[in-house]
Design a binder for these strands. Structure first.
Lengths: 345, 345
DNA sequence: AATAGGGACTTTACCGGTTCAGTAACGGAT
DNA sequence: ATCCGTTACTGAACCGGTAAAGTCCCTATT
């Protein structure tokens, strides 16, 4: 049994079959004017019969445009799997890409330098028409790199981190302030925060906002610890916070994602502490996970799918020549569930 | 301030700069013989100075090969985000693609029909050199489609589902048997299973294996329920199973993924049942999540990252003309943790 | 001395589309 | 009857590479 050598059908075959020139087929398939209805139909009919689809490589070569956008993510694989955030984000991005029959080129990288090299190669090699940049850090090398290349990008991150690049961002500072305010309103005076990777820009923003918010409320015993976003570190951080003697022990903890909050919840129960009786927990980036625990987790909730879609739409804007801009998306909203309550006396 | 129009540098510029012909540059960059060391160096030097990277569209057009593989995933976005499985799988795939400077074209689709159309277009349009197919169901339309197109694919699924396609699969039946055997050995006689989407092939395989295993052990009261893999349905299923009166209530539950097991755990505690005292829980597709709960979840553990890598390697085999084959990967192994124990009395 | 062989390149013909200058045909205005 | 302006389409150049055939020169063989 031999594999049939798949006689690839090209635009020429379609043209021949429809009795027109290649040019006409091209016009028809790009919905450009200059063809009669009848001819157009004949062409589509011929293409259908032959099962022809334009060769994108050829198209992008001659028209020098590609329908692909790039996304490189830089987190250890094991952590990535757990972050519901990314998959949901990606699916939001896809939802708008699909509408415009555009594809997503995804790559996991080990560090920012590798990503810079990758974006560079993608753009130089005309593999993408633009890229989405995530996980900004202070003085991120991708900012000058994208500027230098003239690569159309949208930077997912606060404008203070993304230089002249078009950015789409959530107002983390306000959200942190709201979270702290909520816990303080419940009566908590000893509030701690288990933050994400210190190198990440949005982590520093939240850290600063947390300091500011607690100071403003006159809360003295506010502690923060940095982690790598993993459940394990979340657990470790929680254990260390909760093992302080009662007067120093926080009565409320805010987490930077929901995995760590879940881990924190189990640490509390392992230590014989009642949630929310002895300690209140507040998660971030509300995913379904927060509703699966017992008690359910209160969270700063956030439409990640819609966020991804916004980012993709903005990227199309940039690609079509829109000038740089800064696009805030709705601030995460506090969603109280079962893990937060007033502290016991 | 005008954006510099990015004068794209082509192979011709590099050739000119190195004082050779385009052909020579092509030879150098494809590591083909026929050039002296000196010339080769001059060419690379020139390319480096100009910051040139070959245009992949042009390359794939003339050499009729592309360094891209396709992957379409068909699950609702919200569920996807939660399944640690996919991100980990993807990262495994990426790890071997990257070595061969190959990229992954990812797309989320709504149903199998849409995927068939997509794979068809990808292949016809020469956008991919091969594809990875996941989530097989009985009489999957992708099997005849891939055969008809001559599209090189590797099917992630049991050979009984994937027809003549090259398959990579885990032996779910054996794993289920082992899981049931373990619980039975602990003394459980009333074992239930919270399965995944009934339409999926591996779900039916597990369902059949569960029936078979419980029958073989003479266990009468074995119940199974189908879900959509979501935590919510996992919780609902657990609630329904555990609300039976004690003699009928299962003393052990096996889940088809770990999200549902986490959900089940919280349902048990919400119902005032002790895990593992009153009921033992066993998760599947062991992710970090299983170590974050309290008690920690026993699970059928499985190297998903390595699985993805194997799949990618196999795909390269298929692309380079290796005949169809069936490649089993290691069976998930039972990893006992805190959620399983002998039943009380 | 003539010839063969091979290394190091160059030349040239594509790959499969898009684009744009050109052309033929037709209806209407002058 | 002529000229103009559209509309509908064709033909050829071009995009940036690859691949196969061709050229040239140098050394080894007969």
């Amino acid at each position: 049994m031999t594999t049939s050598p798949t006689p690839r059908v090209t635009i020429k075959d379609v043209a021949a079959r429809a009795g027109v020139s290649k040019g006409a087929v091209s016009l028809a398939f790009n919905h450009k004017p200059g063809l009669s209805e009848a001819t157009r139909d004949r062409i589509f009919e011929a293409a259908r019969e032959l099962g022809w689809a334009p060769n994108l490589a050829a198209r992008s070569l001659s028209s020098s445009r590609v329908d692909v956008v790039g996304l490189a993510i830089c987190r250890p694989a094991q952590l990535l799997g757990l972050e519901p955030f990314y998959m949901e984000f990606v699916s939001g991005v896809e939802s708008v890409l699909t509408e415009r029959s555009c594809s997503l080129l995804l790559r996991l990288v080990r560090n920012v330098e590798e990503e810079v090299g990758l974006q560079d190669a993608w753009w130089r090699g005309k593999q993408v028409s633009g890229s989405i940049l995530v996980d900004f850090r202070a003085d991120d090398p991708r900012v000058p790199a994208a500027e230098r290349l003239g690569l159309p990008v949208v930077a997912v991150g606060h404008p203070s981190l993304t230089g002249s690049l078009t950015s789409v961002w959530t107002d983390d500072a306000t959200a942190v302030t709201e979270a702290v305010g909520y816990l303080a309103a419940l009566g908590h005076r000893r509030i701690a925060r288990v933050g994400g990777a210190a190198a990440l820009g949005h982590t520093s923003i939240r850290t600063a906002a947390f300091d500011e918010a607690t100071r403003a409320l006159g809360i003295a015993g506010a502690r923060q610890v940095a982690t790598d976003f993993s459940g394990e570190e979340g657990a470790r951080a929680t254990r260390s916070l909760l093992s302080a003697a009662p007067p120093d022990r926080p009565t409320a903890i805010v987490y930077d994602n929901d995995i760590m909050a879940v881990a924190g919840l189990s640490v509390a129960s392992e230590m014989g502490l009642n949630v929310p009786g002895d300690v209140s927990l507040l998660a971030w980036d509300d995913s379904q996970l927060c509703r699966l625990t017992h008690p359910t987790l209160s969270a700063m909730s956030h439409d990640v799918h819609g966020f991804g879609a916004d980012v993709a739409r903005t990227l199309f804007g940039v690609i079509t020549g829109e000038g740089p801009g800064s696009h805030p998306v709705p601030t995460p909203v506090l969603t109280p569930r079962g893990s937060t309550a007033p502290p016991k006396v």
